[in-house]
Every structure is written in C-alpha cells, then in structure tokens.
Design a protein around this nucleic acid. Sequence first.
DNA 1: TTGTACGCGTTATCAT
DNA 2: ATGATAACGCGTACAA
Lengths: 351, 351
Amino acid sequence: MFEPTIKDIAKLCGVGVSTVSRAINDHPDINPETKEKIMDTIREYGYIPNNSARNLKRSDAKAIAVLIKGIANPFFISMIKVIEQECKRKHYAMELSHIEADEDEVDVAQKVVKEKRLRGIIFLGGLFSHSDEKLKKLSVPFVFSTVGSIPENISRNVYSSISVDDRRESAKIVEYLISLGHTRIAILVAEAEEQSIGKLRLEGYCDALRAHGIELNPKLICETRDELSHFSMENGYQSTKKLLECGESFTALYAVADALAIGALRALYEAGLRVPEDISLAGYDGIDMANYTVPSLTTMRQPVEEMAKDTTKLLFDIIAGKTQHQHIIYEAELKIKESTKSLHKQHTKNL
Amino acid sequence: MFEPTIKDIAKLCGVGVSTVSRAINDHPDINPETKEKIMDTIREYGYIPNNSARNLKRSDAKAIAVLIKGIANPFFISMIKVIEQECKRKHYAMELSHIEADEDEVDVAQKVVKEKRLRGIIFLGGLFSHSDEKLKKLSVPFVFSTVGSIPENISRNVYSSISVDDRRESAKIVEYLISLGHTRIAILVAEAEEQSIGKLRLEGYCDALRAHGIELNPKLICETRDELSHFSMENGYQSTKKLLECGESFTALYAVADALAIGALRALYEAGLRVPEDISLAGYDGIDMANYTVPSLTTMRQPVEEMAKDTTKLLFDIIAGKTQHQHIIYEAELKIKESTKSLHKQHTKNL
DNA sequence: TTGTACGCGTTATCAT
DNA sequence: ATGATAACGCGTACAA
C-alpha cells in the first residue's frame, strides 16, 4: 500500500509542498482552482497528513486533554459526555486518555502535553497527592475534577479543583438515618485505605455517630472484600452476606456506594429481610440505577453533570486568562427514596 | 518553564545526541557510567522525550489501538479491561481512542495508524458497513469486535470479526418464553433502524413467533422513545409505562437490552404487576446488574470476556502472521433466572 | 564506545 | 499566488 506524503501530492500536482499545505489547512492565499486540483488528487490517492509531523511543528493546538484514572467508573462516562459537548461548543478538540492504575498522572500529562501541544488538562479521578514542585512542571493549566476525594494541601495557585466533600456529605446521609431513629447503623465500606474515598466516607459515618453520641460498634463496620473490585455489586452482595452471618443486629445499612447498595439489596432480599420494613438501606453517589431498583434507593447524589460543565468552563476561563485557579466544592443532594424508613411510629405514613 | 530537548541534555552532559538517545532507549552499546550520568541529568532537568518526533522516525511501534464507538456501553468497559491485560502480557502498548458517533471509524483508524505507527487495530462497537475498497486502505490488520451486529457482506480476507449473531440469539430467548407457554409476548425495542442491533433483535423476535405460528401483534411491539438515549433504564421505564397504558394484554415482556429490562421491572412494579407471577420479563446482554435485581433477570448473556480475549489473541496472531483473517461468531448463553415463569401449571414448581 | 549528520512529514518564513 | 527552505525533536547509519 502506497502511503503518499505531502511531497508526493505536490509532485503529482506539479506544485510546491507549501501550496499543498495551504490547500490542506484552508489558507486564504491560494488560487481556488489550484486548491481544487490539489484536493482532488488528495482524495484520489488517499493522502492523510501525518499528525506526528504536524504536532512536531505546531506550538499550540486548540485542544485539551481529559485524563481518566479508572475508566470503569460510570460517573466518568457521563462526565466525559458533558465535557465533550462543552468542548464542541468552544470549538476545541478533546483528547481522551486513559491512565492505568499504576501510572503517575502528572507524568502522563506532561507527555501528552508535549506530544499534542494542548492548552489544558482535566484530570478525572485518581488521588491527587502530588508535590507542588511536580505540579508546577505542568506548563498548561489543569483542573482536577473528581466525584471522590477532596485533595489535602490545596495549592491554590498551582491548579484548580472541583470536588465534593465526601466526608461531610457522607456524614449527612448518616445523620439522616439517625434522624429516622436508627442507632444501630451498619456500614459497608470498600477500599478503606488512607486518603481513599472509601476512607473519607467511613470517616463521615463516624463523625455523624459521634455527633449524636452513638457509640461506634466495630462489628457493624463491614470492610468489603479486597479480592473483588471495589464498588462492584458483587462486592456489596458478598459483603452484606458476611455482615448478616456475623449476627450483629442493626436496623439500617449504609453502603458507601450505590453499586454496593444494590448488591446489598439483593443479599437482604435473599436473607428474607424486607427493605425498608426490616432494614433501611442507604447508598451514596446517585447513579442512575438507584432510581430503578425495587425499592428505589435513598442516596446522596453528586451533581455530576454540573460538575463536569463547571470543570470545563473553569479550564477554558483559565486558559483565556479570565480567572485565577479556583477550588470549588459541591454539595451532594440527599435523595430520599423508598429504601429508608423512620423508626418513629408517627412518621411511618410519611414515608 | 524550560523544556529541554535531547540536544540540551547532550550539551549538558558533554556528549552527542546519539549517546543520549542510546541511554533513553536502553541500547546495549553504551558505557554504563555515561548512561548513568545522562539519566541523572535527564531527571534533574525533567526532560521528556517528544513523542511526536519519536513517532515520526519510528516505522513500527509494538502497539495496537482500540477504537471505541459508543463509550457509554458498559460492555466495552469490561472488554477494554481484558484487552488491556492481554496487551500487557504480550508487552504491547495499547492506545485507547474514542470515536464520536458521527465520525467515520476507518478514517480515524487511518489517522491513528499513521500517527502512532501501530501494528493493529481493534474496533469496538459501531456498525461496519464500509466498502472493501476503503477497508483495504488500512495498512495494518484489524479485528472488528462487537457485542452487537454481525456485519453483512463479509470480506473474508480483508479483516477479521468477532461477533454474536444477534438475530439468532434473540430468537432463542423468545423461543424460551414460548416454551414456557407464553404467546402474548410484548417486545421493547430501541433504535430500530436498519442494521442496528435493535433491529436485529427485533427480527429475531419475529422469527421466533413466526416459527411457532404466533401472529405478530404490532401493538405489542413497543419502540422506545427516540429522545431518550437508547438502552437506558429511563428509556425502558418510560416505554414500559407507555406500553401498559395502551391496554393491550400480554403475559411476557422481552426487552432487547438488560438496561431496558431493568427500567421495565420498575415500571411493572409501579403498575402493581408482579414479576414473574403476572408478567414474565426477559432481557438481553447479560450485564452484571441483571444478577442483582429483585427478581433477578432472565437474559441472554454474551460472552464478553471470552470475546475480548479472543479478539486480542486473533489480532496478535494475524500480526505475527500465524493465521489468516477469521470471522468468529459466538453463541450467547441463556441465563434462566427469577424473572420468567412457566404458564404450564405443572411446571410451576421447577421455576 | 561515541559523535556527526541526515531524514522523518509537516508548517512557516521568506523570496519570487 | 506560489515555491524553496529552514526548522520541529528524535533515531540511526556511518564514521571515528
């Protein structure tokens, strides 16, 4: 297969390479006829400009990159869609790139920037415990957006961030359970490592109990199995079974992710327990599916679309020099659905 | 911010550029001491090789690309994971790229190949109605893998494909419903355009009914709403409501995707209909979630992991010249769960 | 073992 | 309006 270059096309048309270049890139200073002839032969021979060569020359590319850590997260999918739309509106190209779990996001970012000459970066997911020094090496502005953890040591001037305060929001939903009269509240928590979102949500749970003088019962803290992927339904299912087997009684179960809650729902059903009559169940995230389970799931909804939109807008504003770096924290929204019930008799009807 | 090039590093170390190049690329013919010194200064100055320049020189990159059309599809996520693993095992790099709905996959593929000098391509999703002529322009082998439609006009020598015969498998699950004694079987179908997977699955439904002499009732064919995204739970929910409102009676409902079925499950529940006592419900796809609904969902499971694995293996084999192009068609697996029930009284206990 | 010099395919600058 | 040519940053043949 013959792969023509710009030179070949030039020769074929009997013109210089620069003329061909002008034709390709819609430059104004070219004779329409020449251009047409060139475009014809380009089509005929199936010429495709080499992007590497282009990027090599280019110093600026009216494009941004979105770097995702953890592509399995359904949140990111919906965020990407929104970001994509926003980029289109601004006539920016969007380069999507996937970072492996063991890769360093900043390193990858640097490479991509060099390669594609981008104007900015959006980080989706991943923890962000990088040193300021390292972050400063990134020559383009970037926004760290996550439905997940809020970074510590915020370096206000080095980058922007869009996040939800997991610990605080997690406490809120536990407070809600407490307000319903629950005191024996079990928690299903995955990946409780330092700085992880699981850990943060667990801390929120502890905060809420403490604030209401409810003693922490370690037996009610169910750390999900590490072999299974975090935040999977399977994991929620298995862990709930384990929790039930241990025999400690509880009236409410809080799963730190909706996916876990959905697995839990099934496990409770199989154990003959009715939700919410026997056990109240609450999730966290606000994924679409939570609306369709039977019973539908009480959860904390993270404003994903809004966050994605603002992330993009913020990045473009920074690129345009319209604003400094910002750190925006969103509130999640308590969505009360069918899976939770008050223990106070007089309230029963309202739920 | 100073962005050093290979020349800068060379100067800094007092060596030639080729020596630096050798150091970077782990060439054997270099003095270990020189190499160490070079690597040190590289670290110190934060030098990052420019990938565009590299790709420009390179003629072959021990890498493949995965081009996804429709990133929202949860299947692809699990397929990507598997493909990624396989690539790692073979020490191949994997370039993930996302094709927009309105983009031409072959065009994108050509660009990516030129840019990255890849050895092969995996197409995930998308219809594949490209002319042979166009396909031949792709200079590297490619495998078209889909849980979805099986391409017409198979050009056996131009490319490979891995697929499931949607029409046939769809007929199977309808046959199963028929075998349970159902004759008034409604279908929830999305995106019934020509050649789409929705259409194919609908045809399978028609095939099965016809084969059993059951007359097609147009009122029981519920085309989901186009405004909503295809195959979403919301769509399944809304469409089922519409179907129920139209008043036509049926004993079984077949949703051409599990996501639709999950929405349907909720709609049926809200209408006071019990599954499977009042209505049997069947899905298609075999997504993870189908196991956790209450009741769990009878569905046709597509062997996603296996397909992904074989897709990768096939591509590597073709690259290595070990095999010709192949067209493999997988069977889906009927997973009988709680959502379907026999109408024959004597069988009730078995379900 | 190391350095020099060329070329990869393109765009931009400068003449013409 | 068009063509020649110099970069862009890197790998590599070849010479040393």
